[in-house]
Nucleic acid binder design. Structure first.
Lengths: 337, 337
DNA sequence: GTGTGTAGTCGAAGCGCTTCGACGGGCGAA
DNA sequence: TTCGCCCGTCGAAGCGCTTCGACTACACAC
């Protein structure tokens, strides 16, 4: 293994000069720097991560806690993880993967052993048991999702409330007066996961504001459950002409179910969804949707973390990404009554 | 931060004794060990990961390279990653996440900086560019999937060839004489990804052996592509009564397409699939399938790696998990002609 | 009684890096 | 000219842990 002293000898300088040339923490003359860089290349030098971490008390590793519970859409989580890794690499950091299963102990462990410098926690719940720990830890952290009390934490997410509102407003603008929300599986609400609740809040608030008749239906992520909900909706709201879907897995089965029941989309029923763009696009009838920008959230989360780590600039407590609605084939103006 | 010298002082022993008590590398009297353990608990001691890595040249971290290419089924990859993390934790290791995008440089980097002790590489291709590097590195590694030349490497995967055979044999046993394989997206074959090819080999070999008439059709992961393939099959093989599907994403759309074309499953057409169990189960007609045991592969991969790391026992070059077929509602004996 | 082993512990020497204080030399200000 | 200052560099002191050799004490064999 080639070490910093080898480089120093080869370049005719002291080890500390090599270190400073690498870190830029003290000025080094252009000429010396070039010589050092050449030596590094020739010898194939790579600083030892452990030694660096020990001396600098910085590991250059972030922890990412991924959810593995039911009811969350896996590709979204995966895409998010990938974007976190990619963004972290741009800041010269690596990513350590933790499962939610490890819980608070896992967080404490990687923090206490100085394995990581900072934490990213996904799938935060309204009253997440990890919150006190995250506040107490002296490591910076960023949460994906909003707990009910974000004070003292840095949180980021799509503004799901606004997303719910946006879907309703779009339907209202198209003249729909009777609408329904088909949501995430019931366990997601029972867990009091923030994002699902907020969609409901936004949906309901916007519907009330617009004087629309509305209802909310959690739904399991199975085609059978989708059929049941579709039938129930027709029974309970026969005048229904607009549906908002916040459940990637049943978007297609639900539309199928409506069509089997004789309702054409968008002819009889306009549908908007909150889901990743690629889901909305790859359907028999592409669906008007508010995108879940998982890649952007990941990148932004890492950027926030780096700002906290470097103490440069201030990291806002709350970052709510504004929703954007993309018009596709599943929505049309309501036919004259 | 509480360090090993604090523990040593508190327990009235020397730091080395604490270290040996923790690692078990030298005998420590029961009494002393208990005293040390009590001190550790009281003080809340956690060994510093960097210091440990530096002194022992073992980071207790594994690198996991996850694929992010099109054509692979994301939930499978995710489930696999989770099982790797879980298994690694049982061996007191953590997992660093690398994206395939980082490629060989990423592998070299984490190896050279001693950030990780070992590597797990997913989605290996027949002629993977990373193979020479993996052979040259002095870190142990385990590959998920089989390259064309696995010599000097440790590989593990479901025996996809046998899985293909098994599906055909099952259909043959039920009396089906004209069958087709609907496979992964074309780019998966172009990339010469091992597992997809092997399914085709197994399928073809078993069909030929059994004297069946057969055909192979790659298929994009979109409902539209599924419909096209279904129509094409009926045109080209009107006597078709058995289909093997190796493409999670289009399993349901494909069956739908057949039914729209007037073919009932399993009445007119028996279908078997190679896919995760939860996909096969959650369909209108649950599909007879060979499971992709991603969790088991992950666990076994970690176990292999640990065996190599500790030099205990020998790690076989090739581990092929035997496929298991679960009978569900999508297969029946062929109606008498 | 001497020799040989083993269990149990200690001290000290690193592991490879960063960082702090110091120092010489050049430069502008006084 | 002299003082202070900054630039560029060096040496040495750690960072917190593991590990090697050495040492004591005691057991057992001969």
């Amino acid at each position: 293994m080639v070490k910093i002293t080898d480089v120093a000898r080869h370049a005719g300088v002291s080890p500390s000069t090599v270190s400073y040339a690498l870190s830029g923490k003290r000025p080094i003359s252009e000429e010396t720097r070039q010589r050092i860089e050449r030596s590094i290349h020739e010898l194939g030098y790579r600083p030892h991560a452990g030694a660096r971490a020990l001396a600098s008390s910085r590991s250059n590793v972030l922890a990412l806690v991924i959810p593995l519970r039911t009811g969350i859409h896996v590709p979204v989580a995966m895409q998010f993880a990938v974007s976190v890794v990619t963004a972290a690499r741009r800041h010269d950091h690596d990513v350590l993967l933790l499962t939610q299963e490890e819980g608070e102990d896992g967080l404490r462990r990687v923090a206490d052993t100085a394995l990581v410098d900072a934490l990213i926690v996904m799938d935060v719940q309204l009253n997440d048991p990890r919150l006190p720990l995250l506040r107490a830890l002296d490591l910076p952290s960023v949460l994906i999702g909003f707990p009910s009390d974000p004070v003292g934490l840095t949180c980021i997410d799509l503004d799901f409330r606004a997303a719910g509102e946006l879907c309703v407003e779009r339907l209202a603008a198209l003249g729909h007066r009777v609408i329904a929300l088909v949501g995430s599986p019931p366990e997601v609400y029972v867990r009091r996961t923030a994002f699902a609740q907020r969609v409901v809040q936004g949906f309901t608030a916007a519907a009330d504001r617009g004087g629309l008749s509305s209802s909310v239906h959690p739904c399991e992520a199975t085609p059978a459950a989708a059929r049941v909900v579709a039938e129930q909706l027709l029974r309970e709201q026969p005048a229904l002409t607009g549906v908002v879907v916040h459940n990637e897995a049943i978007l297609e089965p639900l539309i199928d179910a409506f069509e089997h029941l004789g309702l054409r989309v968008p002819g009889d029923l306009s549908v908007t969804a909150i889901c990743p763009d690629d889901v909305a696009e790859n359907l028999p009838v592409p669906v008007t949707s508010v995108a879940i920008p998982s890649a952007e959230i990941g990148t932004r989360a890492v950027d926030l973390l780096m700002r906290k780590l470097n103490g440069t600039g201030h990291a806002p407590e709350a970052t709510l990404l504004p929703p954007g609605l993309t018009e596709r084939a599943s929505t049309v103006a309501r036919a004259a009554p």
